[in-house]
């Protein structure tokens, strides 16, 4: 059977630097390629690179980073952040990215999802959805979570999947950074609503949070940043923990 996936997320800026890494023994903390290789060795199932360079800046360095990563990495990786056109996606895929993640551009022009799926296949189109709990309703946010869209999260996820998204990356902004666990009800609602895999993100603090998001949330994959970056919970330890808890993971 297909295994539940653990996905470390790396923030990159200007195609090089990685934010907030405090790994011991990693000499060049600014080198996302070295960090990616380390995560792969430790058993990461996939990686996500999120370009936090402002969207109006040049994209060129990102394709160079993607080439450098693809040259050494023998597991799949997704690139996201500021991707807004078919040409952006083509450049990243030709450089060796396996999937791209789109967010604000998909909200501004939902037909972009269909265009990308037709052109490159659904398997490489990840739609990232940032949701915030406002007065009991999960609202979709855009522009790095700064602007409300008026859309309800489960409905938007369903629409994105129908348009051709091959996977959804669902982030609860209400949980992100809190280390209080994933948004289980939201994850379950989205997972039940769409036929495509759902990656849960936001709130990972301890190993039990992952058990909960796979079992109660119905997530197919879980993404986290700081829990891995700060070496609070190493990937091999987490995978063995999940295996012992009855979660099917790749050991």
């Amino acid at each position: 059977m297909v295994k539940k996936r653990l996905i470390p997320c790396l923030d990159v800026r200007d195609g090089r630097t990685v934010k907030g890494i405090q790994f011991e023994g990693l000499r060049d903390a600014g080198d996302p390629v070295a960090l990616a290789a380390r995560y792969a060795r430790e058993g990461a199932d996939e990686l996500v690179f999120l370009d936090i360079t402002a969207t109006n800046q040049r994209r060129q360095p990102l394709t160079e980073l993607v080439r450098d990563v693809a040259r050494v990495l023998d597991i799949p990786f997704t690139v996201g952040g500021g991707i807004s056109t078919v040409a952006d996606v083509e450049a990243l895929l030709l450089s060796g990215a396996d999937k791209v993640s789109i967010n604000s551009a998909a909200l501004a022009r939902p037909e972009l999802i269909a265009d990308l799926a037709r052109r490159f296949g659904s398997q490489c189109v990840v739609v990232a959805v940032d949701a915030r709990l406002v007065e009991g309703e999960w609202q979709v946010m855009t522009r790095a979570g700064t602007v409300a869209t008026g859309r309800e999260a489960v409905a938007w996820c369903r629409e994105a999947a129908e348009l051709g998204a091959g996977e959804l990356l669902l982030t609860s902004m209400s949980h992100d950074g809190t280390k209080s666990g994933f948004a289980l009800e939201l994850t379950r609602a989205v997972s039940d609503a769409v036929p495509v895999p759902v990656i849960a993100s936001g709130g990972a603090g301890q190993p039990a949070d992952f058990t909960a998001v796979f079992q109660e949330g119905g997530a197919d994959a879980a993404l986290a940043a700081s829990i891995f970056h700060f070496n609070e919970t190493a990937l091999p330890t987490l995978k063995h923990y999940l295996h012992s808890a009855g979660i099917s993971v790749r050991l």
Partner: peptide, 15 residues
């Protein structure tokens, strides 16, 4: 054919 336990695309690591 997708079901709640078996999403489509079949995506990820399988033995």
């Amino acid at each position: 054919v997708p079901d709640p336990m078996h999403k489509v695309p079949h995506m990820g690591w399988n033995n």
